[in-house]
């Protein structure tokens, strides 16, 4: 994990720190904020109705346990709730899946209030042969700052799938670091963002292939409007000896506002020769000929644009295996476009 500690302003990275080049935390946060007081977490959050246990944090404080061990087939709602103004808090959670477990981790970041600083640390251990699907919905006020760091360790033959859906904040960073053992382990790591106003989102990830025969598939897509800014930093590392690695990364973004911005840095760091690695990155706007075609068929321009945007982003959602959860993410995102 990074050395970030929101109680110590000397740990706030500026854009001079390469990994924070496009998300200058220090610019927005010069001093350590006052510590938030705990709040009670009510309701079931955006994942309501999908069942399972709950692990919840109200302004950083755990409402009950702060760790969960999954075995067999389980669903866990992991909720980070911030309900405060101008104060800051850190939440730390540990999730693990025993050998053979199949855990559906439904995570939500629910923000109310304004101008808060939320820092979440998450450790996820996936035992050999276990499977974890982490789906994350992030909705926060436009003047909030939040940094979520997840560290994921996989055992042999483990499967880990992740989809983050975010709408940004003043600065919202979701960072995932995966230690990939190879050995038949399989990672899917996706993200989707839809930003408007002056919102900023940063999807940063590092997948470190340390052993042979690992697979990673990554797809991130986003749309930015107004003066919003989308940041994608994806790094795939293939260490010496991690032969047989198959890693693919794609990031595609639409700029739908004249003054919106996309910054992307898809990195491949390769030290083994028997590998198949590729990345692709595109930035553009909606296909004029597709728009024209749809208008010709009688769709108003706005509707045609909305439909094309939705189709563009939903490609990421379609990769979610769990049907119920997939539909929920689809609805959630559809409502926010």
């Amino acid at each position: 994990m990074s050395a970030l500690n929101i109680r110590d302003s000397s740990t706030f990275p500026s854009r001079r720190v390469e990994a924070w080049k496009y998300s200058d935390l220090r610019r927005w946060l010069r001093e350590a904020p006052e510590v938030s007081s705990a709040v009670a977490v009510s309701g079931d959050g955006p994942w309501a109705g999908l069942g399972g246990d709950q692990l919840a944090f109200g302004n950083g404080a755990a409402a009950g346990a702060d760790a969960f061990v999954g075995s067999g087939e389980q669903v866990l709602r992991l909720r980070f709730v911030s309900e405060t103004s101008g104060t800051g808090h850190t939440a730390a959670a540990r999730i693990s899946a025993r050998p053979g477990a199949r855990l559906l981790l439904l995570e939500s970041h629910e923000g109310a209030g304004s101008g808060y600083v939320a820092h979440n640390r998450l450790e996820i251990d996936v035992a050999p042969g276990a499977e974890v699907t982490r789906l994350v919905l992030v909705e926060e006020p436009e003047d909030a700052i939040s940094v979520t760091e997840a560290e994921v360790r996989l055992g042999e033959g483990a499967r880990y799938a992740q989809t983050i859906a975010a709408t940004g904040a003043k600065l919202q960073r979701l960072e995932t670091r995966i230690v990939h053992p190879g050995q038949g382990a399989d990672v899917r790591m996706d993200g989707v963002y839809a930003l408007s106003g002056a919102r900023h989102v940063d999807l940063t990830s590092v997948v470190d292939h340390q052993g042979p025969d690992g697979r990673t598939s990554q797809l991130a897509k986003g749309v930015v409007r107004d003066t919003a800014r989308g940041v994608f930093q994806g790094k795939i590392v293939v260490q010496r000896g991690a032969d047989g690695t198959d890693a693919r990364m794609g990031h595609h973004a639409l700029i739908l506002g004249e003054r919106a911005e996309i910054d992307a840095k898809p990195e491949l760091i390769i030290y083994a020769d028997d590998v198949q690695c590729a990345h692709g990155n595109t930035v553009g706007n909606l296909d004029e000929s597709a728009l024209f075609y749809m208008q010709q068929r009688g769709l108003p321009a706005d509707e045609a644009r909305a439909l094309l945007t939705q189709a563009f982003l939903f490609e990421v959602i379609d990769r979610i295996d769990h049907e119920g959860a997939r539909e929920r993410v689809r609805e959630w995102l559809g409502d926010r476009l």
């Binding site: 004249e258 003054r259 590729a278 692709g280 990155n281 706007n285």
Partner: peptide, 11 residues
């Protein structure tokens, strides 16, 4: 917003 940028890389 009117930029068209394409990047692809293979190893």
């Amino acid at each position: 917003g009117s930029a068209h940028l394409e990047h692809e890389a293979t190893t």
